[in-house]
Amino acid sequence: MLIGPPGSGKTTVGRMLAHRLGTGFRDTDADVETVAGKPVADIFVDDGEERFRELEAAAVRQALAGHDGVLALGGGAILSEATQELLDGHHVIYLQVGLTDAVQRVGLAQARPLLVLNPRSQLKRLMEERRPVYERLASIIVATDGRQPEEIVGEILKGLPA
């Protein structure tokens, strides 16, 4: 299970990791979009963050119950205490990223609902607020700054139990 802020590489690394492990990949943000029938950004605008978080918590719960491959959680999924409890006992990999790399990867021109006003400042705030939770939940922490996805996947594989 991969956690981390926007731009940490959860989807990219998750797909590669799943391929290397010969298993499936699932992204809870994509699950939310499927259920809602619209992109995450539109859910925030049309229905609000609270509704998005409800859908997100349900998506995580369902994925943990029915998916045994690599799972990427949305950056804020770990804010839910119920989700934090569900992650207990799972191999949780925190993809740690610095602000500069996150900004480059996110592209800040993309539709990121929580990064609307002053995106760089908002992203920095989100990363700082969430870091202690990411670190507490993680069984493995992998720094991603300046690294290629293949290198990150290799480090994850070394850290997983045999």
Rank of each mutant, 00 (worst) to 15 (best):
G9E: 01
A143L: 08
L123K: 01
R112F: 11
R15L: 13
K158W: 13
G89H: 07
L79P: 00
L17S: 02
K38E: 13
T11R: 10
E50L: 11
V133I: 13
R51Y: 09
A77M: 04
H19P: 02
A102N: 03
G7D: 03
G24C: 09
D101L: 00
L87F: 12
Q110A: 14
T34D: 14
A18I: 09
S80C: 10
A109P: 06
R125A: 15
E129Y: 06
F52C: 00
V106I: 10
D42G: 00
L64T: 08
P161E: 14
R105K: 03
I156R: 05
D27S: 06
G9W: 02
L137C: 08
L160W: 06
S121W: 10
M1V: 14
V153A: 05
G74L: 06
G9V: 07
P161F: 12
G89W: 09
M16H: 05
D31R: 13
D46K: 07
K158M: 13
G76K: 03
L2H: 00
Q148Y: 13
L71G: 00
I141K: 08
H91A: 15
R125Y: 12
E49S: 09
A82L: 11
T12V: 14
D42V: 09
Q104L: 15
A58V: 04
A109S: 11
L71Y: 03
H90A: 09
M127T: 05
T100M: 11
P39K: 05
L160M: 10
A18W: 08
A36L: 10
L55F: 06
D101A: 15
A36V: 09
D88E: 15
Q148T: 11
E81Y: 07
L21H: 07
V60A: 02
S121H: 13
D88M: 11
V142S: 00
R53N: 01
G9L: 01
A111K: 12
H67P: 00
D29W: 11
A72P: 02
G4K: 01
A77W: 07
V92C: 06
K124M: 09
Q96K: 12
G75I: 01
